[in-house]
Structure formats: C-alpha cells, structure tokens
Amino acid sequence: MTDVEALHDVTVTVNGVRRTAAVPARRLLSDFLRHDLRLTGTHVGCEHGVCGACTVLVDGAPMRSCLMFAVSAQQHEITTVEGLGSAPDARVTPTGESLSPVQQAFAECHGLQCGFCTPGFLTTITAYLQENPTPTSEQAREAISGNLCRCTGYQNIVKSVLRAAEITAERRAEAEGDGETA
C-alpha cells in the first residue's frame, strides 16, 4: 500500500476510565491496549486465540483481545488485569498493593511462576467465579482449559481458583457483616 493508512478515533472505557486514541483499522485490541494506551499488563503470546494470555473482559465477558480489532471495541467497557485491583472486593496487602480475591489466591497458592500467562488466567477466572461462585475442582480445571501455562503444571492454578472462591465468599460475608453493624 502506498497511501497512508486511514486512522480511526477509537474510544473505549478501560478499567472505568474513558480512553481515546487514533489508530489504523488493523490495530488489534491487544496492541491498542499495550502500545496506544500503554497498558502492558495484557500479554500477547500466540496472536491466534490459542494461549489465552491476552484475555480481557469486554462488557464483563472474557474475550481474546488478539482476535478483536480496536475499532470493533468502540464504546465498549474493557477490564484488563490492571483493573482487577480496584474491584470492590479488592483489599490492600501489608506490602501496599491492592489485590482482588483471584490475585490474592494466586499469590497464596503460588499460581504463577514467570507470570506471562497470569493476566489471562486472572481475567478468565474473575469472570468465571461470577458465573459459578462455588466450583468443584473438576469445574475449576474446565474453567481454565482455554488458557495455556508453560511453567506451573496447572495444579497450583486449580488450587488458586478454589481458594479465590473462598476468599470471594469471605470478603462478601465481611462486607455484609459491616453493612449490618454500620
């Protein structure tokens, strides 16, 4: 192509903040997040939908950001791994980071090693637990079957799913308890 590619103004709400950038039509949502919005928490492994590292929540539902164009995400709400720590049930740890139940569970259960796959697991599991808050260990395995991890051997990720369900329930009970006494 000799002519300069046309640019599109794309506006999306990412982690609760409206963001706009001018990008060519072929800009993948994954690259839009990483390059244009400088949100490098979303990782890119395979760029054909298989590894799951790039999974983000689009209007709350997990989707592959490498298989969507930014122009198609126009006006939608995106949650990336960077947004998980500001969920209502996130808590600040003694070391000062704010962790959602799923992030807390990964830390406790050693659900990650190199961390490359982790953003995709965290977003996938966050959405899954909203649909099924009390998974069995078999269901937990099934829930992560679309994400690849080269390090952990998955056992600790399965444990993390189950632990995340517990933490979510604990924090909900706590919040409800607070509500009653307040």
Binding site: G49, G52, T55, V58, A61, P62, M63, R64, L67, M68, T124, Y128, A143, S145, G146
Partner: peptide, 9 residues
C-alpha cells in the same frame, strides 16, 4: 465449540 472466551465472541 472451543473455550468460553471464544464462544463469547
């Protein structure tokens, strides 16, 4: 058909 994240789209 595929995994949930693929089925969502």
């Amino acid at each position: 058909v595929a995994h949930p994240a693929i089925r969502n789209r």
